[in-house]
């Protein structure tokens, strides 16, 4: 029987971590772009677009991410389209992240006091000008902490993609366990790596929240 050193295990896990990080980045950036689009539909003036964005968010928040992954992976296969695991994982995570970010950001825009809209209206600004110069600059400030906080959820959510066969950190953990028969060591290391990725983000979210609150102490 082949002996595996701790370094052998860790090295393989770290190599797979690259894919977890990459998938998280793709999901977060892609989800951010789609989420921005959804946000403007959701708070815009066109009723049809508002409803579309609302139902989109409800659909993706109301179903498990795992089902969304299965549907992206197996569903398209039914139509004869061969979807590789990485593509299904990326698409499902982008759409899922977009739903949550759009909803977080909508809350931030709606948190801006009505008086800000009224004051800018009374000065003659149109909707786009109000958004750009008055509402969004303020909404952005309050959006930073929850957005960074949500990125932690995205990283942890990538673990689910191991089930459709995408080899990221969790999947690599399973594979290494099967080879070494040391589940406790392997999954312990996997957990530590996730923690090393997530903890700095949660921490910085907390720090940002405190900082931005200080700037708004009189409001």
């Amino acid at each position: 029987m082949i002996e595996f050193s701790l370094w052998d295990i860790l090295r393989n896990l770290l190599l797979a971590t690259r894919w977890t990080v990459l998938l998280s980045l793709v999901a977060f950036i892609g989800g951010g772009l789609v989420g921005t689009l959804l946000l403007f539909m959701r708070i815009g003036k066109r009723r049809a677009l508002r409803l579309f964005a609302r139902y989109y968010v409800e659909l993706f928040q109301g179903t498990p991410l795992l089902m969304q992954l299965f549907l992206a992976f197996f569903g398209l296969g039914l139509f004869g389209i061969d979807v590789p695991a990485w593509l299904a994982a990326a698409v499902a995570l982008i759409l899922w992240t977009a739903a949550f970010l759009a909803e977080i950001w909508r809350g931030c825009v709606e948190a801006i006091a009505r008086g800000q809209w009224e004051a800018s209206s009374s000065l003659g600004m149109g909707y786009v000008q109000q958004m750009r110069y008055v509402i969004l600059p303020q909404a952005l400030r309050i959006a930073i902490p929850p957005t960074v906080g949500f990125s932690v959820q995205v990283i942890k959510a990538t673990a689910l993609t191991s089930i459709i066969g995408f080899v990221e950190l969790s999947k690599a953990g399973t594979m290494v366990t099967n080879a070494t028969f040391q589940p406790f060591t392997v999954y312990g290391l996997v957990a530590l790596i996730y923690f090393a990725l997530c903890w700095p983000l949660s921490k910085s979210s907390q720090i940002l929240e405190r900082k931005l609150n200080v700037a708004h102490r009189n409001h």
Partner: peptide
Amino acid sequence: LKALRLKVGMIFQQFNLFPH
């Protein structure tokens, strides 16, 4: 509305300054 609002300014009870 814009043409009208260029002619009348408004001041509010809650000031409504832009805090940023």
